[in-house]
Design a protein around this nucleic acid. Structure first.
Lengths: 104, 104
DNA sequence: CAACTAAGACTGTCTTAGCTA
DNA sequence: TAGCTAAGACAGTCTTAGTTG
């Protein structure tokens, strides 16, 4: 139960609450057996256990966030960047990419 | 050794080669014992084993990429977005954030 | 030197069976 | 209902000791 794991769990919790889901229903929608869904999501959010990447991908899909969002690693700018970019129109994405390419 | 793990390893390898490091030297610089550094980085890159998040953070620091980069999950746009944003000046970052906020 | 591998030791997660607000 | 927890079963990683290109 390291500090990094707790940070990861906080990101999961943040996305879950934003989606208005319970720990149990999130787990079930991610394909976890209904009898263990609550326990597993709970352990993830508190940083006690760590899900494999396939589970992370399923959680991201249910919560409609990019997988990378969970790994912003304490950087709020990167977290919001990933959410905004994920929700942005294709035209806006291209503008963002152009802006960042110009610097190089 | 799932597909997602292989994808993760490919991102690590990409960043390592971009930095011009060997598997061994990357591991050592990330604080891994010199006698096991090569083995562990090798297992990570091929998707056989998965490092804990503290190790991931150290690897990201050595390779000068955001942790989230490793978790682009097959999305090239997100991968390059994270690298470019990481290297961008503060003023450019603010422009990007403004662009993405406008849409909301 | 650089990349890679098997296998036992070791460390983690998952399921079961609960409790608490 | 929702959030949470302990502990044995189970599945993973790490170290050792190498081989291969």
């Amino acid at each position: 139960m390291s500090e990094v794991d707790q940070q990861w769990g906080a990101m999961l919790k943040q996305a879950r609450l934003a989606a208005g889901l319970s720990q149990k229903s999130l787990g079930i929608q991610a394909g976890i057996d209904e009898f263990v869904a609550s326990t597993r999501i709970n352990r993830y959010e508190l940083g006690v256990h760590r899900p494999d990447l396939l589970t992370v991908r399923k959680l991201a899909k249910v919560l409609d966030v990019p997988v990378a969002f969970f790994f912003a690693d304490g950087d709020d700018d990167i977290a919001s960047l990933l959410i905004s970019f994920h929700q942005a129109k294709a035209s806006t994405r291209r503008e963002v990419q152009k802006l960042l390419d110009k610097e190089k």
